[in-house]
């Protein structure tokens, strides 16, 4: 008997209705299905999806297939379970039913993110996000893994700035909310479409590091090419939806300035 056993006697569950947008994959038609899920206090969207997986019966009493969704840590640090809940993009693990649907008969709608191709139901393919990290050379160029002593010393303030940026879990909320970020599946076009706030902020993160800076020029080149920082429309939605409260607009502004400076320098250097 440990933490997994519920403490208090369970009260009678109440019912919450889930409307879930389902589809068999990218480009296939979608449909809505509804499920009446009995919930106890303290449940979240994930535990409700688990209930649906165990007994996949719609509110009309029809047998259906279990809903497919993506999940990982369930504590809002891995980014996997991101979806659109009641029209707003967020992680489903931290979406508590008591908060989101406090009244009997309340409804919760779940949809897959719209800026990425659907794999099935609520699961989307966010490969593009990880590929875009290659576009900006998102790493510190090490000589190798042999023992060469410590890294550069760093002030507390700078560490705090970098730490905040490094909390980005590539969930894609900022991209879902961005008017300039569009659904794209054509591989060639992907190279030229807007990378979005998460990637720009990561470029800033690596440029702030003493060794990471070595690749600053390449990163600024990438961010001044098609799909770079100039395509930001300044809607500022990104910073509102970031679950980690990363100062994304600050990052975009910083990288915008750096790109301008970089181009001016290139112009005078005759590059």
């Amino acid at each position: 008997m440990i933490a997994t056993t519920d403490n208090a006697k369970k009260p009678k569950p109440r019912t919450v209705r889930f409307r879930i947008k389902r589809s068999d994959g990218h480009g296939k038609p979608s449909r809505w299905e509804t499920f009446d899920v009995p919930v106890q206090p303290g449940e979240n969207v994930i535990s409700c999806l688990q209930s649906i997986a165990t007994h996949p019966i719609t509110s009309e009493g029809k047998r259906t297939t279990p809903v497919v969704w993506d999940a990982g840590c369930l504590e809002e640090v891995c980014g996997a379970c991101t979806m659109v809940i009641n029209g707003k993009v967020r992680q489903s693990c931290s979406c508590l039913i008591d908060e989101y649907a406090p009244e009997e008969g309340d409804e919760i709608s779940l949809e897959p993110m719209s800026k990425f191709p659907v794999v099935r139901d609520l699961w989307v393919d966010r490969d593009r996000l990880f590929n875009d990290l290659k576009r900006i050379k998102g790493w510190v160029p090490l000589d190798g893994t042999y023992n060469l002593g410590p890294g550069p010393k760093e002030s507390r303030d700078k560490q705090q700035t970098r730490y905040k940026l490094s909390e980005c879990m590539s969930c894609g909320c900022c991209l879902e909310a961005c008017p300039q970020y569009t659904l794209e599946t054509d591989e060639e076009a992907l190279e030229k479409t807007f990378v979005g706030a998460a990637i720009i902020s990561q470029a800033r993160y690596f440029n702030l590091h003493e060794t990471g800076k070595q690749l600053e020029k390449e990163r600024l080149d990438a961010l001044s090419s098609p799909g770079g920082v100039q395509e930001c429309g300044n809607a500022q939605n990104c910073v509102q939806v970031c679950p980690k409260e990363i100062p994304l607009t600050e990052s975009i502004a910083a990288m915008g300035r750096a790109v301008t400076f970089h181009k001016v320098k290139q112009f005078f250097a005759g590059e």
Binding site: L142, N147, G151, E154, Q159, R162, Y163, H209
Partner: peptide
């Protein structure tokens, strides 16, 4: 200790002291 140094070189934002040490 060598592994910590390596992670430090990779850019892990380890918390810092007032003087900038880990």
């Amino acid at each position: 200790p060598k592994i910590i140094d390596l992670l430090d070189r990779m850019g892990v934002p380890f918390n810092r002291t007032g003087e900038g040490f880990r």
